[in-house]
Design a protein around this nucleic acid. Structure first.
Length: 573
RNA sequence: CGGGGCGUGGCGCAGCUUGGUAGCGCGCAUCGUUCGGGACGAUGAGGUCGGAGGUUCAAAUCCUCUCGCCCCGACCA
């Protein structure tokens, strides 16, 4: 149980003005109301109130993890680099992993995640199929030296994550564990008051075969989701297929060079030639893994999706090429052509490849080629789906028009498979007498980010409006004018003591502040119920009870107010 | 890492263009008056003007370097 607390004792400070650096509402409110304080870029302290919210969130997650059979443990933040070398990630992960040497000169790392440690524990402890399946989880600090933190708690460098790891005998077991997590996550986010949608996602640095991200829709979200309101299809745009049909059978026409002075963009080109953008091919250039120059061709009415392209190339790193790099390969930006792409790797989008007679660059300033056809006029290194889905494109499942929305990733689930257990030799002896690698899944939820998302979704002009499940205190008792009216002090103290004695944990504003300060602070802080005791309320027969979410207020007899504060009734309406 | 912006008492800001030795609001402390919507009066504390170097008789202000933070783009819970 969280202790009750007097505001006169609480280590906090509300701010009258918005902090200058806070852009997102959640950040602004959390700082203003005294829940968090920033220490450095992407590094925050949770003040007592913020820490309580964190604990509430943690408890919700813990209950749901336990419910699907999870066993809580605690793994360290500091790992020997050797462990990460064994799985190859010490070298494959870039500067986002913090590294240092201990006093003996041994290489160490700060944990970004814990697959390695789990697999190490498995190789230590699991011998037989009889010990499987097992599901482990912990709440632990992660440090990821992000190139750029942003949005207050939305994207930080140090944060607490709930990460769980399923360890199964086989793929069927993994499927079950994955499904269990899917359902547990749905329950968790619902309990936290978050409307999260699960979308299929890219597997990223974790590797593995299948993944979902749980996304909270928010305009400030860093991911773009492809959603179908007709059938419920949902996917991250990084993986959502483009389901636009190619034009039906059209005879291939001969290539023809046309002068297109000044038409260096698709829009200019289409306008100049009087053709739709869909009849053009767009060439963009990337550098994969710092060395491979790649020409990516999509239809003029599409954009390249860099994640898709990186996956096709099996590239760890992909960035747009610089103009000099493009020119260095003999290409003419603005008029670049896939024909004779000068030793670059050419990847053509499926739809572009299936669309006949496109206008493409002539690789000569001021000229383009009409009627370019993939296969006939040039042979790409790969034809693959690398274009990004667009708003209004047909849903890959039902064909209805999809919508694009931004989302914040609050959780994810991955089917890892045996990548880590094979690398580390975490094998078990099966019923068949053979050794098999343990099959893993990994599942994460960022706590601070979840808290920020809750605030994003539950606030109003006056402040935070905590859902009961995560509120640091269930109710906020306010004594107004207690300094002047001893009866107010007496009744308020009595209510507080009664609540504490009953094991409830209200927040009690016993400060000698003006009514305005106390009431605005109460609204800023955002507890679900505000119980006000004042000369006026006593004269009216009790205490004023306000439901923060609805703003409904009414004077209730003191006994009812006490029942509310002690948690004996959910709502004294 | 590329682009943009900002660092001046605890918080929010002005002052910088045109150098002359730091100011406003809030907060904080003490006293008094107030007490249902961020009260009022009086008194007071608190600032190496992010840091270093330079120009100058004189630098918050001009120049150089540097550190930090925020925002926009490439990565992730």
């Amino acid at each position: 149980m969280l202790p009750a607390m007097r505001l006169s004792q609480l280590f906090f400070q509300t701010l009258r003005d918005d902090p200058a650096e806070a852009e997102m509402v959640s950040h602004r409110l959390l700082v203003r109301a005294g829940y968090v304080r920033q220490l450095g870029s992407g590094i925050y302290s949770l003040l007592p109130l913020g820490f309580r919210v964190n604990q509430r969130v943690e408890q919700v997650i813990r209950e749901e993890m336990d419910r699907i059979g999870g066993q809580e443990l605690l793994m360290p933040v500091v790992h020997p680099a050797e462990l990460w070398r064994e799985t190859g990630r010490y070298d494959s992960i870039g500067p986002e992993m913090a590294r240092f040497e201990d006093r003996a000169g041994r290489d160490m790392v700060l944990a970004m995640t814990h697959e390695e440690v789990v697999a190490d524990l498995l190789r230590d402890i699991v011998r037989s199929y009889r010990q499987l399946p097992v599901m482990l989880y912990h709440f632990q600090t992660k440090f990821r030296d992000e190139p750029r933190s942003r949005g207050g708690l939305i994207r930080v460098r140090e944060f607490t994550m709930k990460d769980s790891y399923s360890c199964d005998r086989d793929a069927a077991g993994l499927d079950r564990s994955y499904q269990d997590h899917y359902e547990a996550y749905s329950r968790i986010f619902e309990r936290l008051g978050l409307r999260a949608v699960a979308v299929s996602s890219d597997v990223g640095m974790m590797g593995g075969s299948q993944a979902h991200e749980f996304m909270v829709l928010n305009p400030a979200g860093e991911d773009v989701l492809v959603l179908c309101e007709a059938c419920g299809y949902s996917a991250n745009r990084q993986v959502a297929p483009v389901a636009v049909p190619a034009p039906a059978g059209e005879p291939l026409l001969p290539v023809e060079e046309v002068a297109t002075p000044g038409a260096a963009t698709i829009a200019d080109l289409a306008a100049f030639l009087g053709v739709p953008e869909a009849r053009t091919a767009k060439a963009t250039f990337f550098v994969a893994d710092g060395t491979r120059l790649v020409t990516a061709i999509v239809r003029g009415d599409f954009e390249v999706n860099e994640t898709k392209l990186a996956n096709v190339l099996h590239a760890r790193d992909l960035r747009p090429a610089q103009a000099e790099e493009i020119a260095g390969a003999g290409m003419v930006p603005g008029y670049a052509s896939p024909i004779g792409a000068h030793g670059t790797e050419v990847v053509v989008d499926e739809l572009a490849a299936a669309s006949p007679n496109l206008v493409a660059g002539a690789n000569r300033a001021g000229f383009h080629l009409r009627n370019v056809n993939v296969g006939r006029d040039f042979t790409p290194d790969a034809v693959a789906p690398i274009a990004s889905a667009r708003e209004g494109d047909p849903c890959p499942r039902c064909g209805a028009a999809v919508v694009l929305r931004n989302g914040i990733e609050v959780g994810n689930i991955f089917k890892l498979g045996t990548r880590y257990t094979e690398a580390l030799g975490a094998l078990y002896l099966g019923e068949d007498g053979e050794r098999h690698p343990i099959v893993m899944g990994s599942y994460g939820i960022g706590l601070g980010r979840a808290v920020a998302c809750v605030v994003e979704e539950h606030h109003d002009a006056k402040g935070i409006v905590w859902p009961a499940a995560v509120a640091p205190h269930p109710a906020h008792l306010v004594a107004l004018g207690a300094a002047k009216d001893p009866q107010v002090r007496e009744e308020a103290e009595r209510l507080y003591d009664a609540a504490c004695a009953a094991g409830a944990e209200p927040l009690y504003d016993d400060r000698d502040e003006s009514p305005g300060v106390k009431l605005t602070d109460a609204e800023l802080l955002g507890m679900p119920w505000i119980v006000t005791v004042s000369t006026r309320s006593l004269a009216a027969g009790g205490a004023e009870v306000t439901e923060r979410a609805t703003g409904e207020r009414a004077v209730r007899p003191l006994a009812e107010a006490e029942a509310l504060l002690t948690g004996r009734v959910a709502a004294a309406r």
